[in-house]
Amino acid sequence: MAASPVQVTGTVLTTRRVDAYHALTVVAPGVADRTRPGHFVGVAVGGPSTSMLTRRAFAIHDVKPDYGGTVELVFTVRGPGTAWLADLRARDTLDLVGPLGRPFPLPRDPCTCVLVGGEYGSASLFALADALQQRGCRIDFVLGAPSADRVFGALRARRMGETTTLTTEDGSIGMRGKVTDVLPGVIADTRADVVYACGPMAMLQGVTAVAVEFDIPVQVAVEEAMACGIGVCMTCVLPVIGDDGVTRMVRACTDGPVFRGERVRFEDVGTIPFDALGAPGGRHV
């Protein structure tokens, strides 16, 4: 693990709506200064006497040095936990553990990178884009979502990227379709050396397939349901092929969330592949 995580009680600095999403900036020194692109935080929801026991995991969208260090999280309301988060106001406190996970690996030499974001998965790509540009990389964005209000960060992508291609399934902004429809063209035009992707599992699967077709490396940041985020609960596992060729059920929180796309067995996510290490045989129930 790159940086050891800490638990802090942060103070909410600002809350804002960004189209269909909520963004929350929290003063969290100690978390902010160790964060690398791709890291996430585990957030306790519901306050001190909550009945919600599990932490919610959110990718870190932005880190700023203000007030000793702030982190910004982007999320959508999916249940009572995220609804509670959406109701937070400035000066409320929030219990964070982070930074967690393995960040995006960065190329040693300048190269051309395509950054693919699905829905608010693109939130974690901008810090990555910053880091890549500092290394002299060329950045091109492909952002997609079902509708225009769910494409996150299009403006910022246009500012940072050499080119930015948007796709929506209803055609309300950019091209009608999915990111995987336009990705081959973008990779070919830019002669991309590497693809980074973050978003829903189905999109990551499609992006990986495209990158494999072009025979270029692809790094994906997966979204799995987690309870702890620190590697103890074993609930966020997915089948990933290791260096030795053996498939293991690895934890998205501590072994990921960033994986080499071609190593993730997307079609087997949610199952235990029969050839995974320790898959049920005749001997165990």
Binding site: T54, T235, V269, G278
Partner: peptide
């Protein structure tokens, strides 16, 4: 022997509790 465990989802949050089948 090594065990791969159960398929996901393995966890569900319930009021003041947590269901798991790892």
């Amino acid at each position: 022997a090594p065990r791969a465990g159960r398929p996901t989802p393995r966890m569900a949050e319930t009021p003041s509790g947590l269901l798991n089948a790892v």
